[in-house]
Design a protein around this nucleic acid. Structure first.
Length: 281
DNA sequence: CACGCCTCCTGTGCGC
DNA sequence: TGCGCACAGGAGGCGT
């Protein structure tokens, strides 16, 4: 079962990508930009040409690249999302042997190319006015970064107390906290000993979950993310977090806390693994 | 508004 | 061996 699991980029994976893209892109001027087609997840990017990459910022699972002029500031913003299978390469030309489904290309003034490859087309490539996220509702309503002071335990507890949805659904919806996806939701809920389908999470358990989210995200960033198959860094290497997972992908394996076989279920239309003994509703 | 279900997309792995 | 199909899921859209 575990070897059929596919990994999707979440906050730690996107942060690892950001750290590799930043030194390669900041200060570069876009010579030409191309995206494979218009659609709900892509929009024309040709106007990026002539603009300098001023920064490579991450918010949740989004990468934001302000483009413009060092003195005049940002004139545009490139919004990128890896979706499920997105990956980047810095290449010497418009092709790369590792990439079979290039969806966007950015030629840079030092002769390198930023290539975006995305088999399943769930990724996003949009060029917008700086800060104009109205067409990207999840980004516009994105909650606080989990490792920032803006992620407040009391506010998190209050928000959970005001909802009737399963706690895992709230972790996934990006509004209470940014960047948590299916893997780290299961990991954090296991660590906090909370059943993923629980609809009533009191203050004490909410505080445990708040700490658990921070812990699993920080640990995964240290290990440059989790790789099963799809996610990889800009240099093609894997993250090292897969060997440290305690919940995700461990159905039928013994709980590392109590030895009870982990159970697989579906919550919020997502595969979910939890310990039926030490994660109680 | 909140919630939950459906859809998109395609490679992979399994069963027959 | 080969075919068909279920499955994976972030985010958007829509129905209730």
């Amino acid at each position: 079962m575990a070897d059929s699991v596919v990994c999707v980029p979440e906050l730690p994976e996107v942060e690892s990508v950001r750290r590799q893209l930043h030194p390669a892109l900041v200060g570069r001027v876009v010579v030409a930009a191309w995206v494979d087609r218009d659609g709900p997840r892509t929009s024309p990017v040709e106007h990026a040409a002539g603009l300098e990459v001023l920064d490579v910022v991450r918010r949740g699972k989004y990468l934001l690249l302000p483009l413009g002029d060092v003195e005049d500031g940002a004139e545009a913003e490139l919004v990128l999302h890896l979706g499920m299978t997105g990956r980047f390469r810095i290449a010497d030309g418009p092709q790369h042997p590792d990439l079979g489904h290039v969806r966007a290309r950015f030629e840079l003034d030092d002769g390198t190319w930023l290539l975006f490859d995305d088999v399943r087309r769930f990724g996003r490539v949009n060029l917008v006015e700086p800060g104009d996220h109205a067409g990207i509702p999840t980004l516009a309503a994105l909650g606080p970064e989990p490792l920032s002071d803006d992620f407040d335990a009391d506010a998190f507890a209050a928000a959970l107390a005001a909802t009737s949805a399963p706690v895992k659904a709230r972790l996934l919806d990006q509004r209470l906290v940014a960047g948590v996806g299916n893997i780290y939701a299961d990991e954090a809920l296991w660590l906090a000993r909370i059943h993923p389908r629980s609809r009533r999470v009191g203050r004490a358990r909410a505080h445990r979950l708040h700490a658990a989210v921070r812990k699993v995200i920080a640990a995964a960033i240290e290990r440059e993310g989790t790789t099963f198959r799809d996610y990889e860094m800009v240099n093609g290497q894997s993250g090292r977090n897969a060997d440290f997972l305690v919940a995700y992908g461990r159905a039928d394996l013994p709980c590392q806390r109590c030895g009870t076989p982990m159970r697989r279920t579906v919550v919020a239309q997502r595969g979910t693994t939890y310990c039926p003994d030490c994660q109680r509703a």
